[in-house]
Amino acid sequence: MVERVRVKALTPPGHVRAPWYLRGKEGVIERPLGHFANPEQLAYGLKADTKPLYRVRFRMAEIWGEGAENPDDTLDAEIYGHWLEKVDTHAP
């Protein structure tokens, strides 16, 4: 089953690995990658929790809209689980 997700459109300061151009954008989980130490804690020398990491695939049309160079090309990025929210595909 295809799992649709949206990157949270959060804007905290400091070291995060969710790229700006993907925030608020919807994609599908291409594959789960396992659990990794949270870079948002490691960056400040703190003991880090582990977080699930996913490879998420986005259509260029979703990211860049009308201005996409080719709407059907894709972009894959690794996004930590705490930056993702599920998209309800059965919504009316």
């Binding site: 690995r17 969710a18 790229p19 990658l33 990794f36 870079p39 990491l53 080719n70 059907d72 090309d73 894709t74 972009l75 894959d76 990025a77 690794e78 996004i79 930590y80």
Partner: peptide, 10 residues
């Protein structure tokens, strides 16, 4: 189809 991969994490 072009598939771009942004190495954002591990």
């Amino acid at each position: 189809t072009v598939r771009v991969h942004d190495s954002t994490a591990d």
